[in-house]
């Protein structure tokens, strides 16, 4: 257990380190580095001076890197060019919105994917199987943003759902639940978009995982024991099939971020994805840099959690 755990944690830290280095050098070596940013007309003389000191722009690159890491360790991601506020503050505000959206969408899509995938494998070769297969392939081929646009187009005109944002502009609420109801209304379409697109992939994974398990010898043993098909599915196939699925979901976490960015753009959801796109348009590089770092670290962290879940599910890893 501890060996596995240490290995995984070490691995995650190494990846974080790689991301930090990448993040630093990308923004230094490529155009758009702070050295040019100080010429940004939006900045006041004082803030230019502040940038210069904090990034140590007059010092050699390795020193600059150490300074960057030191600032990072203090939670200092710099100041937004556009908003003149600390990047960390801006990101934290938006992080929760993104987590809310990805969290709801991921949980729902995994559940839907597991149910559909198991049903398809269970009724392999029937109309249920083909339906799930074709639906999933179509969902996989559909661009998330386009599906969101279509849902938005339809939902806002036919169902009277809000066209975007997290809360109705200018609304005041009598109680907390009224506010959450409003959030729920705004969240409905983005979550549905996200869930359906990603459930397609999870259905495909789960279906093939369960089919692989059904071909295992211990399923034959279970059948020889006289267990009924449903018992075999419940007691011998589900947990075993969850293992490859957890791995795939973990590997897939990077892609779920892509979905969040697309959905946030379409539904103007005030999350990290929206922040990234805005900062690109406004050439607000500190925010872009910080948002990328935060997203990457979140995914690495989620991956670590998935590894821990895996070790909980698989006794062969659990006991070492």
């Amino acid at each position: 257990m501890s060996h596995y755990l240490f290995k995984k944690i070490g691995w995650a830290l190494l990846t974080v380190g790689f991301v930090v280095v990448l993040n630093f050098f990308l923004f230094r070596i490529l155009p758009g580095d702070p050295a040019r940013a100080v010429k940004d007309p939006r900045l006041t003389r004082q803030s230019i001076e502040a940038v210069r000191v904090r990034f140590g722009l007059d010092k050699p690159l390795p020193v600059q890197f150490l300074l960057y890491v030191r600032n990072l360790a203090q939670g200092d991601l710099g100041t937004s060019f556009h908003q003149q506020r600390p990047v960390a503050t801006i990101l934290v505000e938006n992080l929760w919105n993104t987590l809310l959206l990805i969290g709801a969408g991921t949980v729902l899509s995994i559940l839907l994917g597991i149910v559909l995938g198991v049903a398809a494998a269970w009724k392999s070769g029937t109309i249920i199987d083909y339906g799930a297969l074709i639906g999933s392939l179509a969902a996989w081929a559909t661009p998330t943003f386009w599906f969101g646009m279509i849902l938005l187009f339809w939902g806002s005109s036919q169902l009277g759902l809000p066209i975007g944002g997290k809360l109705t502009a200018g609304a005041s609420y009598d109680s907390w639940w009224e506010q959450w109801l409003d959030v729920g209304k705004h969240m409905l379409l983005p979550t549905v978009t996200y869930t359906i697109i990603y459930a397609g992939q999870y259905t495909l994974f789960m279906r093939s995982a369960v089919l692989d398990i059904f071909a295992e010898d211990y399923i034959l043993t279970a059948k020889a024991k006289g267990l009924h098909s449903f018992q075999i599915l419940r007691d011998h196939a589900l947990r075993n099939a969850m293992l490859p699925t957890v791995t795939v979901v973990a590997l897939n976490l990077g892609f779920t971020v892509a979905g969040a960015i697309e959905v946030e753009k379409v539904f103007s959801w005030p999350g990290l994805g929206q922040t990234i796109i805005d900062s690109v348009e406004r050439q607000d590089y500190p925010v872009l840099q910080g948002a990328f770092l935060l997203l990457a670290i979140s995914v690495i962290f989620a991956n670590l959690l998935a590894d821990l879940l895996y070790s909980y599910l698989d006794p062969r890893v659990r006991v070492t």
């Binding site: 990308l26 971020v257 960015i261 990234i276 690109v280 990328f292």
Partner: peptide
Amino acid sequence: LVIPDLPLLIVLIALL
């Protein structure tokens, strides 16, 4: 494989 694709793409294009 772990680093999210799309944000990195966006960053690269924003810079290049």
